[in-house]
Design a protein around this nucleic acid. Structure first.
Lengths: 180, 180
DNA sequence: CGCAGGCGTTCACGGGTCGGAAACAACCGG
DNA sequence: CCGGTTGTTTCCGACCCGTGAACGCCTGCG
């Protein structure tokens, strides 16, 4: 999760949007202005001009806090880790990219075509590859209570699963199981 | 829980005691000195001289965080003793430094590269050294209910182990570790 | 109505890569 | 001298990811 830099008070509206979206942000305070009312652990501020080191320190602190708060909306970070509701899974590169595309349109249909380009920006392999990755992705995402629904001849759609938890045994990959 | 004001670097030892005790604290930085390595959500800093309002704002933020995070944040002191939730382990030098890096980004992925530089500031030995130390670290940390999770090809990630007590022998396989 | 084909799901498998773990040797301080 | 720490080598297993193929469901056409 990236921390966003926001000028204060110049970019007041932007700050509101970020706060509503639950994104962590660092306010860059113009000299003389007071820090705004806080109460949000995902917000911090620093007076400018400031040392590079100070700024990096504040950023690191914010990022760490952001990681420990429980995102109710799914968040995919740059390391292929998908967090949602206190749970997380790590996704391999191809599946992380596909997930990113689905996440960008959470609850909406994403065509196979778009998913293919997301997963393989340099050009897709065989036609079946996407199907197989969707299968694998389904198993992984079930651990964080997300599901990929099929919309026939249209594409796929990512949504939350209300139900109870899923045991790790029921989603174990059969490629591991069949070693015999 | 009251936030304690600590002069930095003048009261360095006092800060260590507070950190070990898990008390929230606000460092008052002398002009020109860099903020100390953080990674502790119960610590914040401010440069002095500072506005009264700024200081109060920082205090309020810390207090709010202390109220929500007080359930035992892991603390690593300069003697290589790691405390968490009433338990503790002593870590040898190399592993203490690696742990420090992981702790600074608790819950976030830390690359092997960064961990290597943390463990061996003077230059890393062979490539496998890190693997072995991670293995040893896993066994030690399991006694204080912390776990190092692998994020393949990306790095490692430190997190709390939710469940009941863990014996040092039960370092479980990766695929079982993903919590249900 | 019945069936062929489209479409999607699932399984099996193989090659390549990466991390885990044991065993061993060197080292250090008490 | 001994136990704990550290580094290396080496082998094994797990994971990633593409392919081929079998199967099932739905649709539309004859």
């Amino acid at each position: 999760m990236d921390v966003v830099l926001v000028r204060w008070p110049a970019e007041r509206q932007r700050r509101e949007r970020l706060r509503a979206a639950g994104d962590p942000r660092l306010l860059l305070l113009e000299p003389g202005v007071a820090p705004p009312d806080g109460g949000d652990v995902l917000e911090d501020w620093i007076r400018i001009p400031a040392d590079e080191a100070d700024l990096l320190d504040r950023l690191a602190g914010l990022e760490a806090r952001a990681a420990t708060t429980l995102p109710v909306a799914p968040v995919l970070d740059d390391d292929g880790v998908l967090r949602v509701g206190g749970r997380w899974v790590s996704l391999p590169p191809v599946e992380a990219r596909i997930t990113g595309a689905l996440l960008g349109r959470l609850g909406l249909v994403v065509s196979r075509d778009v998913l293919g380009r997301a997963g393989w920006p340099e050009g897709a392999p065989g036609r079946n590859a996407l199907d197989v990755h969707v299968l694998r992705l389904r198993r992984r995402l079930s651990e964080v209570r997300l599901a990929i629904r099929t919309v026939r001849s249209r594409g796929y759609l990512l949504e939350h699963v209300p139900g109870a938890s899923v045991t790790s045994a029921s989603v174990r990959r059969q490629e591991d199981v069949q070693q015999a």
